[in-house]
């Protein structure tokens, strides 16, 4: 985990990329969003090899192989119960919190096995943050929500006020909350709370941000703000998003993985990865019939 060549993303760096700004999200035809090869370098951040995930005796996910590229937005889509959230939560060991959950196979982060015995899950989550389906700000002030991560992880912060401001700016929330940083985060609207949760995640400078249906509790305007934000953040962060909303996957992601539930010989349902390719390919010319059926709305 101490590769000196790998530059950790920096919250204090607001304009770190010289790439042209992405076109406005809502106006783009989903199919044309990501022309050509995915941008960003092709370095792999996360790699799943024959990953099987169990809850007790029940196998929730079977045989997933995929890689997640640096500074890309990777979308995991599929019908309910297909295991996409389970896969997402295996990437920063959030499944550890569920009694009986177990991961077999290899999940590697820059080549390092995340489930090796010497790996500290706390350290994993410092580098791989997560934003949840329902906004879950702490019942503290906006300021303390942002400062929470740097404080618990013992980051040496010379100027916490500045860090809070940078994180809020980065999450496109600063203008709305700058005068009420000391007020309770619970007074914010749902969309603002979710951006606060993103700001809070950014504040510990992770490399990867996992998002588990981050817009499913939000209205379309708030959703569009979060999507713009995701695109903006993907310059510096690697993002993996689970979404039920296919248009969202098409709008924001570079690569899309389609999961579905399959019934095995014993009659048990397991989530499986059906197809994984550039978002453009998945939405315009999927290789698998089931992918096509799902994205055209014929099932799921």
């Amino acid at each position: 985990m101490s590769d000196p060549n790998r530059k950790a993303p920096d919250v204090t760096d607001t304009v770190s990329s010289t790439r042209p700004a992405p076109p406005p999200v809502a106006l783009v035809n989903p199919a044309n969003r990501n022309e050509g090869a995915p941008r960003g370098d092709d370095e792999q951040v996360l790699r799943l090899e024959d990953v099987n995930i169990f809850y007790g005796d029940y196998q929730a996910v079977r045989g997933v192989d995929m890689t997640i590229g640096r500074h890309q937005i990777t979308a995991l889509i599929g019908p309910s119960g297909c295991g996409k959230s389970t896969v997402l939560r295996s990437l920063n060991r959030m499944n550890d919190l569920i009694p009986g959950a177990r991961v077999a196979g290899r999940v590697t982060y820059h080549g390092e096995d995340l489930y090796a015995r010497e790996v500290d899950p706390i350290e994993v989550r410092r580098r791989i943050g997560m934003v949840f389906q329902k906004p879950n700000p702490f019942p503290k002030s906006i300021y303390d929500n942002i400062a929470y991560g740097p404080r618990v992880t013992g980051m040496r912060v010379s100027n916490m006020d500045e860090l809070v401001e940078k994180a809020l700016r980065r999450a496109a929330l600063w203008d709305e909350v700058k005068d009420k940083r000391k007020q309770s985060a619970l007074a914010l609207s749902g969309g603002q709370q979710q951006r606060l949760c993103i700001a809070r995640t950014i504040a510990v400078s992770p490399e990867v941000i996992l998002m588990d249906e981050p817009c499913s509790a939000l209205d379309p305007i708030a959703t569009s703000k979060i999507e713009d934000l995701m695109f903006e953040l993907s310059r510096d962060y690697t993002i993996v998003i689970v979404t039920h909303n296919m248009q969202q996957a098409a709008r924001v992601s570079h690569r899309t993985a389609f999961f579905t539930a399959e019934v095995d010989e014993q009659g048990e349902r397991h989530g499986r990865l059906i197809e994984y390719d550039t978002t453009n390919k998945i939405f315009t010319n999927p290789a698998q019939k089931r992918t096509e059926e799902y994205i055209t709305g014929r099932f799921g």
């Binding site: 920063n92 959030m94 919190l97 706390i122 350290e123 989550r125 410092r126 943050g129 997560m130 934003v131 949840f132 329902k134 879950n136 700000p137 702490f138 019942p139 929470y148 991560g149 618990v152 992880t153 949760c197 809070r200 995640t201 510990v204």
Partner: peptide
């Protein structure tokens, strides 16, 4: 206390 707050805290690398 909602479980979602605990998850949020764990996701921010809390012990």
């Amino acid at each position: 206390v909602p479980q979602s707050l605990r998850e949020g805290a764990y996701a921010l690398a809390s012990t």
